[in-house]
Design a binder for these strands. Sequence first.
DNA 1: AAAAAAC
Length: 549
Amino acid sequence: MDAVDLFRKLGAGAKFDFKRFGKDAGRFKVTTVWLFFCICFSYIYLIPVYCYIDAENKTDGGEEEELENRGIQWLSSQDKKAKGPKTKAKDQLSLKRLKQLHSEKVNQIRHSNRINVHGTDIPDPLSTFEELQKEYGLDPRIIQNIKAAGFQTPTPIQMQAIPLMMHRREILACAPTGSGKTMAFCLPLLAHLRQPFNKGFRALIVAPTRELASQTHREMLKLSEGVGFRVHMINKGVDAVKKYGPKSAKKFDILVTTPNRLIYLLNQDPPALDLSSVEWLVVDESDKLFEDGKTGFRDQLATIFLACSSPKIRRAFFSATFTTEVEKWCKLNLDSLVCVNIGPRNSAAETVEQELLFVGAENGKLLAMRDLIKKGFMPPVLVFVQSIERARELFHELVYEGINVDVIHADRTQQQRDNVVSSFRSGKIWVLICTALMARGIDFKGVNLVVNYDFPTSAVEYIHRIGRTGRAGHKGKAITFFTEADKPLLRSIATVIRQAGCPVPDYMIGFKKIKSKVKRQLEKKPPRRSTIRTMPRFLIKKKPGKRKR
DNA sequence: AAAAAAC
């Protein structure tokens, strides 16, 4: 069984813990294996119960010495002073009361920030960035950088994920789009590495697109400014071979990259990259990188997992959306996993005003789009379509409208992609037509409107697309065109919209639920749509698709 | 369907 096979099996939710049971386990018969799985599963489902009982015991048990020895910050400095010299009985009583008050306070903080957390021994949420310096020894310069970037207080995901990672806990974290996930994993990495150390990469962040990797890289640079960490991104495979290979000076700390470039380096002979000193692996957009199938990311992720061979390795998974598959895998394969959820799972950001617009048939979309432009709009605007070809077509339709429009997709050169992103960031482009390339993680400041020109292929895709607006507490708007052909998925997306508090006609919710098998098929094969064209054909630049499929 | 590598 080769490495990738192993991971596939793990991905399917089956795990056999060879480490724990030794090689004899391999000789077990199928039935025994089944029995083992059953025990495993029942154990996992009982964890919350144990957890609850455990917590009860702790608050009532009066084992204050043990608690203090474990370094749990039960008492604020004031509380400690207030303790004073008292008789032992009174002391115990007041300590018990303080602990009770403390846990009430913590629960209240979690509740009011909609932090749901599952697991054992969970550290208290953070309420200010300054605590990072006091409790975890974060460089004060980094706190300064945070403040300079305009962040005053931690967001809910940061409040809980940062202390967890600081305690070296492996986590699966889900928080809405634009709610500060990037900083939630960047800060613990910086705090945990303490200082630059010439040993090779000690932290690795993987993201599904180059644009997202480069954004995270920039964010990391900004946060660590003046501290001297060496944060790298793989730009070109060939250059990187020399840069990180066995003959390099090994002066780096953090690597941000997309999976396939990393694998290219690992596959060189000799390997051009050594991941054996990586202590933190962060998987951003984890559900995307877990995508299975021939063209999915999963096999690539598997290779990366196995290359991070340090016994000290800790892993953290982040995304705005949640799949049970990722959860199952994490529960089975990570060490005493903690799940953090902010608000309800798989929900759209509530800061986005969402609208569904019936446009009749396919040709109605272009009319609706032109209408939208004519009526006036507030740039910048993102327009999502389902394929590269349609992105090109729509671009050629809108380029003569007298607006600054451009297009981005994976068939453009890296140079073009970089230019488009920076022009859109600086406001030179008003309307950007894009594929799923832009759907995840990208943080454009102040996108006012997202138009779903083509209906998203799933509710998850919808949540990510519209999450490009309404970020960091700002307001945003999303308009989703739909035609008769989009009816199968209308219900699930209408449900997401209603859950976020936006009005949706009742009849849509009343549609029959489609089978999950059909749903999956729709994700892989979205409805065929007729060409976007009113311009004479000869005006359209043809670009023969050389993409390997 | 889209995304992700390079020579």
